[in-house]
């Protein structure tokens, strides 16, 4: 605890990637800019699952530009899932805090200093970005997508009473040991993974703060929400309802 107080905190950003060749350089550029301007110590850990579009090659170029202290590469042989990507990333992280976000630029790094400010105010264990409160928002969703997301969140709030407004969001800051503990207890995959992390956090009485964020649906590539994702979400929700 004393060490935390004395040495300035370091932030590790975990970026799991799969076919993000176009997005990765830009998100890294924006991250570096944000952290440098705020005067914060950071590292970016890129966990690439052997993307066919050769995301790793671009990541190596970025490492040459920004140095291997700031850009850490942890490639994996194939698509092995989000949870294990985080575990893998945490193992290599040297920070006290871990930030998870999407690499597709739907999450903007400009909110990170706000996350950090909130975290420091009351020493929160978790700060989560929320699209669903005043000041937050989403750009690029049609009515069907908005309705789906609202119904999904309403169902979850009735069944699980999680106390967090944006359950399926994935732009969050964690104390490193808290993230590691939560991942170890979380069983779900996909959309439900992020939701289960929040529900488990509440169960373990971790403190959670919310910060409004804007979410711009991906500029490059396609965001998918099909019938199989919806069925998967409902199954996962039901599983949590029985389990929590």
């Amino acid at each position: 605890m004393n060490i935390d107080v004395m040495s300035p905190p370091k932030y590790s950003v975990l970026l799991p990637t799969y076919n993000e060749r176009q997005n990765l350089p830009i998100i890294v550029w924006m991250l570096v800019k944000t952290f440098t301007e705020a005067g914060l110590d950071f590292e970016i850990i890129i966990i690439d699952d052997n993307s066919p579009d050769n995301t790793l090659e671009v990541a190596k170029q970025l490492q040459r530009v920004y140095g291997n202290q700031k850009i850490v590469l942890r490639p994996r042989p194939g698509k092995l899932g989000l949870g294990t990507a985080y575990v893998y990333g945490i193992e290599s992280s040297t920070g006290n805090f871990v930030i998870i976000m999407d690499a597709d630029m739907s999450h903007h790094p400009k909110f990170i200093p706000e996350f950090i400010k909130h975290q420091q105010k009351h020493n929160y264990d978790i700060v989560t970005g929320t699209r669903y409160v005043s000041g937050g928002g989403v750009h690029g969703w049609d009515l069907r997508r908005k309705l789906t997301s609202r119904v999904a969140n309403y169902l979850a709030s009735v069944l699980l009473n999680p106390g967090v407004s944006d359950l399926t969001g994935s732009f969050r800051l964690y104390k490193k040991e808290v993230l590691a503990e939560l991942i170890a207890r979380t069983k779900s995959k996909g959309y439900v993974f992020q939701m289960e992390m929040m529900v488990r956090a509440r169960q373990l009485r971790h403190t959670i703060a919310e910060v409004p964020i804007t979410f711009v649906d991906r500029v490059y590539g396609e965001s998918k929400l099909g019938a199989s994702e919806i069925v998967g979400y409902l199954k996962g929700l039901w599983g949590l309802f029985l389990d929590i």
């Binding site: 903007h108 669903y132 005043s134 989403v138 690029g140 711009v216």
Partner: peptide, 17 residues
């Protein structure tokens, strides 16, 4: 009513884009 209201007040952010 809850879902409808949440849908109507769904925040957009064209400036962010």
């Amino acid at each position: 009513a809850n879902i409808g209201w949440a849908l109507v007040t769904f925040g957009d952010c064209p400036d962010a884009q």
